[in-house]
Structure formats: C-alpha cells, structure tokens
Computed example of a mutant assay.
Amino acid sequence: MTTRVLPGPRERLLEAAKELTYAQGVGVGVDALLKAANVARRSLYEHFGGKDGLITEVLRLSAAEDEAAYERTMRAAGDDPRRRILAVFDWLGEVIEEPDFRGCRYLAAELALADPDHPGHEVTRRYNARIRALLESELRDLDHPRPAHAADQLLVLINGALAVGATRPGTLPAAAARELAEHLLDEGRG
C-alpha cells in the first residue's frame, strides 16, 4: 500500500495564488485564494505574513521558472547568438497561442500593484533585468555595436508582443516582433 502525500497549506496557497493571480490579476481577493487552496486564513499569515507576501513569493517563483524557460529556449537553438535570440520570439509565439494565455504576469503585476513600495515591484524589476542581461550577453556574443541599447529594444519587443497577445488575440504579435528583432540584429552586421 502506498501513502499519498498531499501538498501542505503553504504549497496549496502558492499553487492557488499562481493560478488565480494569473487568471484574475493580483487584485484577486483573499477569500478566493483561501477557498481555492482549501486553507484557513491563519495559514496565509503564518506562511506569508499576508496577501502581499504571498503575491511576492508567487512572483519570485514564477520569475525563476520563466527565466529558466528563456534559458532553455536559447540553449535549444544552438550556439549562434542570432538564432538564440530569434528563438525567443518563436517560443513566445507558441506561448501566446496557448488557450490559457493571459499576458505577462510581471507587466500585469507592475500595473496593478498601486503601492510603489510593494515588494512585488522589486521582484518584477529584477526579473526584467535578468532577461535583459540574457539578451545583452547574446548581443555581445553577436558583436552588436550597441548591445545594451539593443537589449532594451528587444525587451520592448518582447513585452509588446506579450501585451498585444493578451489584448488582441489572433494577431501574431510574436511574429511581428521577431521581424523587427531581425532588423535590430542585422544592425550588428558589418
């Protein structure tokens, strides 16, 4: 006979918050989170100090997962930095076409967290800085003449594709962003 171990309250809260904050935004109510996780209010405060702590932890965990997905996508594209960067846009095209796609969790959180001191802002900004650093590293390997500036531009294209993908389904924003990225990358060719 095998014993099935069920996730504890902390894990259930994290999973419920990850799903609900993506589907409904970070403004989702505490009662909805508690109900989805099937935990008492006390568990929220014991494990996270409140909703802000839970939101911040979900953003932190999601950011680590998403950063790893960028890295996997780039590695799978081989050794050519140009191909690795363009692979990001191909992958984003797949992500945007998923039926449960709701846009970028980090952009949505940045816009929804009204308190400028909310700890979630630091998490989203660090995440964006790490993605930008990945892009800049590839651009340096490509010998792009302005790698820092081009990384900023690529990040705008990525965020724009994700935003348009959420607000205008069926418009293929990642393909449009990829085409613009190709022009930006070609700037580095002598």
Rank of each mutant, 00 (worst) to 15 (best):
Y45C: 06
E57A: 05
L134Q: 12
H183R: 14
Q24F: 13
R125K: 11
N159Q: 11
D117G: 12
R168M: 11
R82F: 14
S62E: 14
S43M: 07
S62T: 14
A177V: 08
Y127C: 04
I96E: 01
G50L: 00
T73S: 12
D143L: 14
I158K: 14
R83G: 13
A37L: 03
Q153G: 04
A36V: 06
E46V: 15
E15A: 13
R125W: 10
F48H: 04
L154E: 12
R140I: 15
E67S: 08
A148D: 11
H183D: 13
Q153I: 06
G49Y: 06
A32P: 08
L184T: 09
L54W: 01
L184D: 09
V88W: 07
D90V: 11
C104E: 09
D80I: 02
L172C: 12
L20K: 01
Q24R: 15
E15G: 00
P9L: 05
E57N: 00
L113G: 00
L107P: 02
L107S: 15
D90K: 02
M1G: 08
M1E: 09
R10T: 04
A23V: 08
I131E: 05
V95H: 00
P7Q: 07
R84H: 09
I85R: 01
V123N: 01
L6V: 10
E136I: 06
P99D: 14
R189C: 04
R60G: 00
E15T: 08
G188I: 10
H144I: 09
A76F: 08
E94Y: 06
C104I: 09
A16G: 05
P81V: 06
L34P: 01
D152M: 07
T171N: 06
Y70D: 04
E138V: 09
R125E: 11
R146E: 15
A150R: 11
K18Y: 09
G120L: 02
T56P: 03
D80C: 00
D79P: 09
E179K: 10
A16L: 08
E11P: 02
L86G: 01
R168W: 07
E67D: 05
E71D: 11
E46N: 15
H47L: 03
V156P: 00
Y22L: 04
P99H: 07
R132G: 06
P7N: 07
T171E: 13
H47Q: 10
R189V: 12
T73W: 11
P119K: 08
A76R: 10
G120M: 03
A174M: 05
V28A: 02
E71T: 12
L139E: 09
R4W: 07
K35Q: 14
V30E: 10
D141Q: 14
V88T: 13
G170P: 02
T124A: 14
Y22S: 00
T2D: 12
I96W: 03
G170Q: 01
A63Y: 10
L185W: 07
R126K: 12
L44F: 09
G50N: 02
V95Q: 07
P99W: 06
E94I: 07
L139S: 06
H121R: 08
A23Q: 13
K18P: 00
D141I: 02
A109D: 04
K35H: 13
C104T: 03
L107I: 13
L20N: 02
R82L: 12
A151T: 03
E138Q: 15
L59K: 00
P145W: 05
